[in-house]
Simulated scan of single mutants.
Amino acid sequence: MISKDLKTQLEQINWKRILVFYSLILLGTFFVRKLPNLLQLTLGKYVDFILPWNLNHGIIVFIIALIFYKFSEVKKEISFLGIAKIKTIIFPLILIVGYSIIGINNDFGVNKHLWGCIFITVTFIYDIMEEYAWRGYLNDALGKLFWVFKSIVTGLFWAIWHLLIFDNFNQFGGFWIFALLCIVFSFILTFSTIKTKSIIVPAAMHALFSKTNITTLIIFSIFLVLLFTWNKFFVKEGIKN
């Protein structure tokens, strides 16, 4: 049985608008993935190796989200820096400084500390673009839907979108396990978004998990402490949406 409140929340959502938004995301991603890697075209001449990023799909989802924010009637609750700008900046600072200190080994002949800084910074910039669509516009488009259900919806949409990004999901044990991981991770990202009203925070958390090592665990623990102490006390009203 669906509760009366949940039924009301679902009825208030403009699902047609969300479907159009998501359809354009899928179509846009499909086509830009066929284009040359814009980052490689721009910066590739300065290095003698293939850059490990393709920002094409991040750029297109960001542009589509910008357009929908501009021309749709969705109330914008989420911004880049959120409700506490200084606290928000702490997240990417910890992320970038942490990986710069620990470093990331690479096969490109780049100093591991410099590469750690470069890798996580570019990844973070990409994740800002991606999160602007999923935890930004889509989150706002879902209106007053309880944050748990927002996490499930955005996580599922996010997982399906990756079918256009990855050649296979073998490293995750198959697509359905990957989809489950996306939904679980979406709970963390959605919570951080609603708690801080920021895109920067979930983008930093997203970038953090581009690598999984002891550094990831340490920084993630710090991030959780920051989130749960965002206010003096954990206020449930802060995560109702």
Rank of each mutant, 00 (worst) to 15 (best):
L10V: 02
I13S: 00
R17I: 05
V20D: 01
L24R: 13
L26E: 06
L26H: 00
T29W: 03
F30H: 11
P36F: 03
N37I: 03
L39I: 11
Q40L: 02
Q40W: 00
T42Q: 10
D48H: 12
I50E: 14
L51A: 05
P52L: 05
N56I: 08
G58W: 02
F62W: 05
I63C: 07
Y69I: 10
K75F: 00
K76C: 01
L81K: 11
A84D: 15
I86N: 14
I90V: 13
I104Y: 02
N106G: 04
N111T: 09
W115I: 00
C117H: 01
V122K: 08
V122Q: 08
T123N: 15
T123M: 12
Y126R: 14
M129K: 11
E131W: 00
Y132W: 14
Y137C: 03
D140P: 11
L145H: 00
F146C: 04
W147E: 04
W147H: 05
F149H: 10
K150V: 14
I152C: 02
I152H: 09
W158I: 07
F172K: 10
G173L: 10
F175C: 08
L180G: 14
I183E: 13
I194T: 14
I199Y: 01
A207M: 02
N213I: 03
L224R: 03
W230Y: 09
G238T: 12
I239T: 07
